[in-house]
Design a protein around this nucleic acid. Structure first.
Lengths: 356, 356
DNA sequence: ATCTGGCACTCTGCCTTCCGGAGTGCCAAG
DNA sequence: CTTGGCACTCCGGAAGGCAGAGTGCCAGAT
């Protein structure tokens, strides 16, 4: 999706945007690349030396002035080099960068590493670590969502006369359990009956559809058993609803130390944000349904993460995505590489999930 | 160093340890307290001003010289104030500090906060957050251990002709599940039989004792069913064993930003350590069976945490502890306060677990 | 035998000053 | 439109200076 429109030579007639000719874009690209590499403002001379732009520093300076006026780059102070702005990165990502694919050995390694997983927890754990390692940034992986998945099995276990354990298993291998305190003792036959009916009506259904399908179930039981049935159902529905607060796994926080020079200030709000599951969930939630989403700096509407970028994508066991994953890093990140890693990992987790 | 032998007459004949008279200890205590508060080397004059030691700065200086010679405090450079050494903190913790109990309102708040938990996960999550908040440090909580707990129920669910789900429920409310691939299809009657026998023999038993109790179980089945039974048992034993790699929950990493001035250097190895479950588990594992354990700086035999201290304690649902929890902070921490918080939280989690 | 005030000394931390280097914007010529 | 030249700006590190805090030791007081 990177450079679909690159050669569209030029003009965007929209408001005050001047034509971005080829070279000017090349200059922006070079600035982003150099800045990402060196972490220091990049000046015209250094730029010409490191890239063969075929023009002189003076010319580059003119282009820079134009880029600055359009808000793509920015000067920390007079007579310093330039730094890309959020808008500059945005342009870079949208039109200048190619997602850098993983090499074959890398792909093999990813696949091999993920294949070693023994259960769903392990898949997620491995995925998140892998992603953190590949990108050298903070990785976030959402557990396969209950919303999108379907019921594989519902189990009821009598623990005590009036205590029943409810277990919900999804097609993605996720298991949720709840203890139900019943309003009276429950006979094994009723329990078996309920179990059978639950599975008959709910198996294979997508989780959000389950309540509707079971609504009338109490009526299929004798008057005396209805309270119990209702209680169990209530708990089940609660589980379904509650678990829409998805779980999330995190790794690579140590990579935050490579964030910047002005340390505590930058890193603290980020660490705080990372501890808030809610924030992370919202972050991932804003990922587009298909394709990779890149949000840069101020585009993220959570204050603590205003100087970071988030690259996220959905992944799934089949054709459609059941959850999201991504990485969080400084706006000054290697977008092509990061996007490549994120895409590759998402693809392979999907495969692994589909197989199991 | 010029006065090594000055107080010669005080030297205790045992290996260079001189008697630590009352005042000298008071000085050490004061140094620790001030340093913890200010984070700056503390000098004799300031010390006298802030504590009523009843003596002059000069006298304090003499005591400091002695304390330094014995390795309890240390001078970053000539003509700077003193800083406690690990050994100094150790003495402070062992002999000078009183665990500071939580106030009644604090205790109420703790209890109230923990009581809101809906399941085991939530208990642990709340505990770890609470602990991080109270101590303003990094908190670690181990899930109630399977080793110590007992089997409440074992459930088998047929998912497919040759696929069975095994669910293990413990008295602490923990649930583990595994999918078992059987070497042949499994009849519902065999499954029911197996389920019944498993529970009959294992229920109430402590997890490590379960394998022994079930060893002979295959013999109670017909020849043809034994492979299946054995497979299920194998998976069960595996689950029991594997889950001794306990799980751990973490919170408060943002508090690391308050660690010190020389940032990335200090914080990075710590962040790395915190991502290694194994390290954390070993850390908690070294907690004494009863009572609180405090490990200071170099006493921790994991390099990355050499400039931190760990305060940990066991907690349990009944009389004996089933897991550990603790906090990790800079060696320069408020030991009395931290210990008080850790102890209080452990106590209340224990109560909550016992009730549920 | 201890404590204390005094004193000379040392060291850090901070502030100021002072360049060198890198980078810029502008201009006039190619 | 591009380019070399030029004057200008500003950062960042080095060097120097200074106040403050702290020390060790000594000689006298208790």
């Amino acid at each position: 999706m990177a450079n679909e429109r690159r050669d569209e030579r030029l003009i965007d007639t929209r408001a005050g945007v001047r034509p971005l000719d080829e070279r000017r874009l090349a200059v922006l690209r070079a600035i982003v690349q150099d800045y990402v590499g060196t972490e220091e403002p990049v000046g015209s001379k250094a730029l010409v030396e490191r890239h063969n732009l075929g023009v002189s520093p003076a010319t580059v300076r003119n282009d820079m002035a134009a880029l600055e006026e359009d808000g793509f780059i920015h000067q920390p102070h007079t007579s310093a080099g330039r730094i890309p702005t959020d808008k500059g990165y945005r342009l870079f990502v949208d039109r200048l960068a190619e997602v850098k694919p993983m090499t074959a050995p890398e792909r093999r390694a990813i696949r091999h590493f993920l294949e070693g997983a023994v259960d769903l927890d392990d898949v997620v754990a491995r995925t998140v670590r892998l992603l953190a390692q590949l990108t050298r940034q903070v990785a976030v992986v959402q557990y396969p969502s209950l919303t999108r998945s379907t019921v594989r099995h519902i189990e009821l276990v009598a623990l005590a006369p009036a205590k029943v354990m409810l277990v919900l298993i999804t097609n993605t291998g996720r298991v949720e359990q709840r203890i139900v305190d019943c309003p009276g003792s429950v006979g094994e036959t009723v329990l078996a009956d309920l179990r059978a009916k639950l599975n008959a009506n709910a198996s294979g259904r997508r989780l959000p559809d389950v309540p509707a399908a079971l609504e009338d179930l109490p009526n299929a039981f004798e008057q005396g058993d209805r309270p119990v049935v209702s209680t169990v159902l209530a708990t089940l529905f609660e589980t379904l609803a509650e678990q829409n607060e998805e779980r999330i796994m995190l790794a690579g926080t140590a990579n935050l130390t490579r964030f910047g020079h002005d340390f505590p200030l930058t890193i603290q709000p980020v660490l705080e944000a990372l501890e808030e599951q809610v924030v992370l969930l919202r972050l991932l939630g804003e990922t587009a349904e298909s394709g990779m989403t890149v949000r840069i700096g101020r585009e993220i509407d959570y204050e603590g993460l205003n100087s970071t970028s988030v690259v996220s994508v959905g992944y799934g066991s089949g054709d459609q995505s059941v959850a999201k994953l991504g990485v969080i890093g400084p706006t000054r990140m290697d977008y092509p590489g990061t996007m490549g890693a994120v895409r590759a990992v998402a693809r392979y987790v999907g495969q692994i999930l589909a197989e199991s």
